[in-house]
Design a binder for these strands. Sequence first.
DNA 1: GGCAATGGTGTACTGCGTACACCTGACGGG
DNA 2: CCCGTCAGGTGTACGCAGTACACCATTGCC
Lengths: 238, 238
Amino acid sequence: MSTQEDAPAERRRRAPLNRERVLSAAVALADRDGVESLSMRKLANDLGVVPMALYKHVANKEDLLAGMVDMVIAEYDPPRTNSDWKGAIRSRILSARRALLRHPWSRQVVESRKQRTPAVLSYMDSLSGMFMAGGFSPDLTHHAMHALGYRIWGFSPEAFEDPDAFPIPDDPQEQEAMLRQVSQVYPHIYAIAMDASGGDITAVGSSCDEQYEFEFALDLLLDAFEQLHAAKWTSSER
Amino acid sequence: MSTQEDAPAERRRRAPLNRERVLSAAVALADRDGVESLSMRKLANDLGVVPMALYKHVANKEDLLAGMVDMVIAEYDPPRTNSDWKGAIRSRILSARRALLRHPWSRQVVESRKQRTPAVLSYMDSLSGMFMAGGFSPDLTHHAMHALGYRIWGFSPEAFEDPDAFPIPDDPQEQEAMLRQVSQVYPHIYAIAMDASGGDITAVGSSCDEQYEFEFALDLLLDAFEQLHAAKWTSSER
DNA sequence: GGCAATGGTGTACTGCGTACACCTGACGGG
DNA sequence: CCCGTCAGGTGTACGCAGTACACCATTGCC
């Protein structure tokens, strides 16, 4: 967002595109409209350019998406070095989460990516290094990284997040009928929802504090790793 | 795969389609060719029918995919009732994993689904019920379910799974050069890979035992839940 | 001043999901 | 037996994707 304020009038000879400007525009577009409406054509349009021009700077859409993920990774805070492994890893991952929340689309892009870019590998290497700096064996580090999974990218790996899974009708009578039905068909989910919302029916939909859930699971895992490390765990079979 | 062996000759008056046959054909197609090449047109073609005919049986492609997930869920073993909560949950989830491995595409479909179908809710309800039958509070059950995340569907939530992340050249000289480079740029990943493969360079690519990783993380979580339960944990903030 | 490289253009192709109007053949009531 | 209904299959068409390929314009170097 620097040198493109000349937009409508006399925009001949605008600064030439480059990979970075393409990626930034893509990130901006996805931030604004969501990744599902990011197309090469729309992106080109945003840049005042014809679609095929983009292909001089990115190999294809896959490459574009990979580059966008790299831009998000570039926003992560650098690792803290002045603390124990657990605090350092925890705060690095929470920083990844903050970046992810600034770019909500990145979750689904990370999920769909297959190729590891250097930036991705770098981050994974750095995180592994933080475990090892805490005295973890390569073996335990390896399994810890796998166990964290998507969580190293700052999101909880959960399916079916539609907030309208249980649409709450306005009419109180329908509401009650719906609840009675749910309580019969999905009694345990009902119990959880009631418990989580403190019985306030209208709050059921939004009763999950995602940040709390994330930190809960993260800390659970880090604590478990700590115990295994203290117990000098090694993977049994070999 | 029952009543469609009449294919080329005189196929007038084939048995009419129904939702189930459409879904089965879709599952078969995805098993065969992968979900990325599942299109309404190809599916219709497999069924000897024109694309628009499918829309008499599924609302749209989203609905088709949701139905396919339901078919996979239908393959899960029923819950074991004759064991402790941990064993029962463990074996139910491993059964989900077996179904998932039979239908490798379902992983990415589950990841992309937003709407919870009744079958999905049912499974989640049943799993929650197994925790509660083990004496878990709704509160702890809730957080345990979130912490498990995608793992309840039988897969490890990990990004960037491309097996060719580090293509191993055939030429031993290039191989060594590549390894030296990796060891410098990603020293910790290098250490892990070496450790996991026991130093056998050519085995580095395939050195992750996914099933072991899955069970490792699953057991880690279940054990952690058990400890929290024993300690009468409740979510602090409320 | 000519020439190669760099980067933007225009046109076109294939494949997708699906809207909409239409046809067809089976069935049930008069 | 005829006729209306209707479930289910058809045909055509639209808009939107990603991107191959041939082309042109600008620039900087010899």
